[in-house]
Design a protein around this nucleic acid. Structure first.
Lengths: 162, 162
DNA sequence: TATTGTTATACTCTATAACTATA
DNA sequence: TATAGTTATAGAGTATAACAATA
């Protein structure tokens, strides 16, 4: 054995890849309020019914206090809109504005390109494998949800909706 | 489309999985100086020639100033040892102590078990796939290095060295 | 002049608790 | 009593610059 054993560690590999992706994403979304997190908020709002701040925070894996700051910035930039939830006056619905929707489309394209560069060491089929495996883990291993997500990605690409 | 589009995002999936792994690792290595980072230092020292603090910092992807604090703690706990490099009096060689080596073995076993739980949604073959793909990306896509790492993992497990 | 390791400082994130207004 | 959102504060983690010793 000549190589340090840490390279066999899943946590080490995950950390390195995640950090590398974060650096890439930061470059791509530079200027966007909230950085990569801000992008994820926009993506979390797209293609679905309006969501509460709390629901959004949970999908993104951040505290609800962080969501307040993020949305303050994004709303200030005119990318999202907060409106009271008619069904529950404690909650607020968050929506993507026209501007935000357009911005999201461009960012998704740029990010996809940057990611392909990041995944360059892998064959195209392997990249899809990695995406699929990580998605299944991230959605909680629920095979049905994972399958649904995969179908929607294809749909999205076929649509040309973005 | 009913599910938020963020779930199709690689950065989102990577982030969620990496955070989940970090939480798991923090539980497992609780009490170890430096937490998961401290474990990675120990793993980085195992099965190789003594390494300088800077080399170690680079593999772990942290600043060299962080390495100083980490090693202060680990050395204080008697897990590693710093000695002057006879070939370069600016540098210091970092070595695993007997205690550190033993501690590492136990931690590796516990971590492996915890990781299997984390990867439970995937079939055994898929877990290996994911590990392999992430490793190849993390070592920089160098297929030779990646292959070497994979061989060493098998060797390690066959060895029963830990 | 560049590099290794150390120290001190500042900045960014994150976690926590407290507060309001609703349910 | 519990929940959604906000605000303020403290802590961890990280980045930066400056320094001494050596190459």
């Amino acid at each position: 054995m000549t190589t340090p054993r840490v390279e066999a560690d899943l946590g080490w590999a995950l950390g390195r890849v995640a950090r590398a992706h974060l650096r890439t994403a930061q470059d791509v979304v530079s200027g966007l309020p909230g950085g990569p997190r801000g992008y994820q908020v926009l993506a979390g709002l797209a293609a679905g019914p309006p969501r509460s701040q709390l629901a959004l925070a949970r999908t993104l894996g951040v505290d609800r206090t962080v969501m307040t700051y993020l949305l303050d910035e994004l709303e200030g930039a005119g990318l999202v809109e907060r409106r009271p939830d008619p069904a529950d006056r404690r909650a607020r619905q968050v929506l993507l504005t026209e501007v935000g929707s357009g911005r999201l489309c461009g960012l998704e394209r740029d990010l996809r390109a940057a990611e392909d560069e990041l995944l360059a060491p892998l064959e195209p089929a392997e990249r899809d494998q990695l995406r699929a495996l990580l998605q299944r883990l991230a959605v909680g291993g629920d095979a049905v949800s994972a399958c649904q997500v995969a179908a929607e990605i294809q749909e999205m690409q076929a649509d040309g909706s973005c």
